[in-house]
Amino acid sequence: MNAARGFPAFPPQRAGARFATSWWGRAWIQAMEDTSLDHGLLRKGRAYAKTGQVGPITVSPGRIAAVTESEYDTVVRVEQLTDAAWQRFLDQVAAKAGHIAALLDRDMPHDLVEAAEGASVPLLPAVGDLEPECSCPDWGHPCKHAAALCYQVSWLLDADPFVLLLMRGRGERELIEALQQRDAPAHVPARAQAAGMPAAAAFAMGVPPLPEPPPYDVVFTPPALEPDPGVDVAALGILAASAADRARELLLRGRLPELTEHQDHVRLAAGHDLPGGRADGLGAAVQAWRYGGADGLEALETPWTPPRQALARAQTLLEAGWEGERPPAVESWRNRWTLGSVQLRYGRDGRWYPFTDRDGEWWPAGTPERDPSALAAP
C-alpha cells in the first residue's frame, strides 16, 4: 500500500522564474500544455503558480491534489500502471546497474524511459493522459487552477523523479524493495552445482547482483608520452582525454549522440586546448557548445521554422513574464526573435538560446531556457 506524499506550498517566485529544468519535468509540462486549447488560461495558470496561489500539494497513486486560491479543490488524475506493466518496468531497471544508481541519484535516464516505452510501459504522460478536475466554475481543460498545479508539480519532478513513479502507482520504498528481491538469487545446493540442474530451475534463480558501477568523478590524466617523429603527442593526449570523457558520459547516460565531423571538432575544442591553432575560427561555436552541446551549436548555425503552436506558446510565456507590462517589440524570423540587443533562438530541443550582439555578430550568451521570458524579462 502506497502512502501519499505531502509537499509544502511553494512561496511566490520571481517574475522570471522558470518551471521544469529536467527533461522529464519538461515532458510533463508539454503533455499538459499540448492538451490545452486556451493559451489565456495557461498564462493565468503560470501566474498563479509563480505568485503562490497553490496550497500544499499531495501526491498519491493516480492523482495530485491541492487547494488553489484558498477555496477551490483541484485534482489532476494520472492513469496508474498495471501490475504486469510494473513487472516489465522493473525488468528494464534491473537490466542495467546504471539505471538503479541514476534513480537513487534522483535522475531519470533517457534510455530507461525509452526501454520502458519499448516494453509498453508509458512512464511520461502524453497528450490527453492528464485529467484535471476543479471545483471552480471555469470550463477550461485544464482550468487556470489545474494548470497552476501542474506547473508547480514540474518543480517536484525536477527534485525527485520518484514523484512521477508514485503518480503511476508505486512509491520509492516499494520499488527499491522489489529491485532488491530481484537481486537476491536463491541458494544453489553444492550437489546441484557439481551435477548441473534443469534449465527451468536455473532461470528461476533470477539475475545475480551486478558489480557496483565505477566512480564517475575520477579525473582522467593522459599518460606522459615521449616525443616521437611523426607522432603528434599533444593531439594524442587530447584524444585519450576525450575518449575518457565520452566513456564517462556513456556510463552516466547509457548512450552517446551521433556527431558529425564538425560537431566532434567543436566538442573537442570546447573541452580541450587544441594545439596548433586548430580551434581558430570556432570561438562562437565553442561557446555555443559549452552552453548547450550539439543543440546549442545547431541553434547558432542552423535557422529553421518551428511549428506555429510552439511559437504561439512561447509568445504567451513571454507576455506572462512581464506581469502586465507590455513586452518589447519582437522582430521575428523563423526560429529567431530579436528584442533589441538580445536575440533568442528556438532550438529543436524545445528550449530558447540567448545571444547578444558582439561587433555586429550574434554570440551565445548563456544557458537555454524553456521559458523565453526568463531570458528577456527585466
Rank of each mutant, 00 (worst) to 15 (best):
M1H: 14
R5V: 00
P8S: 07
A9T: 03
F10N: 00
G16I: 01
A17L: 04
I29W: 02
I29Y: 07
E33D: 04
D34L: 02
A47I: 14
A49H: 11
A49K: 11
T51K: 12
Q53Y: 11
P61T: 10
A65E: 09
T74I: 05
T74D: 14
T74E: 12
T82D: 10
T82N: 03
V93K: 00
K96V: 03
H99V: 01
H99Q: 03
I100L: 14
A115N: 07
A119M: 09
S120D: 15
L123G: 08
V127M: 01
E131V: 15
L149P: 11
D158A: 01
D160A: 01
E174H: 13
E174Q: 15
L175Q: 11
E177G: 03
A178T: 04
Q180M: 10
Q180Y: 09
A184F: 05
P198W: 06
A204N: 10
A204Y: 08
G206A: 08
P208T: 13
Y216M: 11
F220I: 02
P223Q: 03
A224E: 15
P227D: 14
G230H: 10
V233K: 12
R246G: 08
R248D: 04
R253W: 09
G254Q: 14
G254W: 12
L256K: 13
L259S: 11
T260D: 10
E261D: 13
Q263W: 10
Q263T: 15
H272K: 08
R278V: 06
R278L: 14
A288W: 13
A288E: 11
G292H: 11
T305D: 12
L311S: 07
Q315F: 06
L318M: 00
E319G: 02
G324H: 05
A329R: 05
W333I: 10
V342L: 15
G347P: 07
G350C: 00
R351S: 03
P354D: 10
P354A: 06
F355D: 03
F355C: 07
G360Y: 01
E361L: 02
W362V: 05
P368R: 09
P372D: 05
S373C: 07
S373F: 04
L375W: 03
